[in-house]
Simulated assay, not measured.
Amino acid sequence: MQTELTGKLQKLGFTENEAKIYIGLLRQGEATAREIHEFTHVPRTKIYSTLNRMSKKKYIEVIEGTPAYFRSIDPEQLLERLRDEFLFSLNETLEELNSAGYGMKNKCC
């Protein structure tokens, strides 16, 4: 089931490591980078860069401290954020396509 869920998150734009971390944090609640590595098997060399990227995208929250703890945002919040990002991207693309093809309507036969 986790592999299937990882695949679904990848279809939504997550990398494999992001998907593993998000799912792992949902199950664990809060965890340090070391703990995340241990239960997700994401390579240690990738943990911090992936957590940083996910934090910038606001898919996870960082609880500052020594060590820092991480937790995933609520799945409903995540899906709402992904939907908003997707719709924004669609609208931007539509505007650019319309601008690029502006003169095309008048260039017929």
Rank of each mutant, 00 (worst) to 15 (best):
Tyr69Thr: 06
Glu85Trp: 03
Tyr48Met: 09
Val62Arg: 15
Tyr59Asp: 01
Tyr69Leu: 15
Thr66Lys: 15
Arg81Leu: 10
Ile47Ser: 04
Glu35Arg: 13
Thr45Arg: 13
Thr32Tyr: 05
Thr50Ala: 06
Leu90His: 04
Leu79Met: 14
Lys57Ser: 10
Ile73Gln: 06
Gly29Cys: 03
Asp84Phe: 08
Lys58Met: 11
Leu79Ile: 15
Thr32Ser: 14
Arg53Glu: 11
Gln77Pro: 00
Leu78Cys: 07
Tyr69Gln: 15
His37Cys: 06
Glu64Ile: 11
Pro67Asp: 07
Phe88Lys: 11
Tyr48Gly: 06
Met54Cys: 07
Pro67Tyr: 07
Leu79Ser: 12
Ser72Glu: 06
Thr40Cys: 05
Pro43Cys: 05
Lys58Ile: 08
Phe86Gly: 04
Asp74Tyr: 14
Glu64Pro: 08
Gly65Gln: 11
Phe86Ser: 09
Tyr59Val: 00
Arg34Thr: 14
Glu76Ser: 15
Arg83Ser: 11
Pro75Ser: 07
Leu51Ser: 03
Glu35Tyr: 03
Asp74Phe: 08
Ala31Lys: 03
Ser72Cys: 13
Glu38Trp: 06
Glu85Arg: 10
Pro75Arg: 09
Arg34Asn: 13
Ile36Trp: 02
His41Thr: 09
Arg44Leu: 11
Thr45Pro: 02
Arg34Ser: 14
Ala33Leu: 02
Tyr69Arg: 15
Val42Ile: 03
Tyr48Lys: 11
Lys56Gly: 08
Leu78Trp: 04
Gln77Ser: 14
Pro67Trp: 09
Ser49Asp: 12
Tyr48Ala: 06
Lys57Cys: 07
Arg34Gly: 13
Thr40Gly: 01
Lys56Glu: 14
Ser72Asn: 08
Lys58Asp: 15
His41Cys: 06
Lys46His: 13
Phe86His: 10
Phe70Val: 05
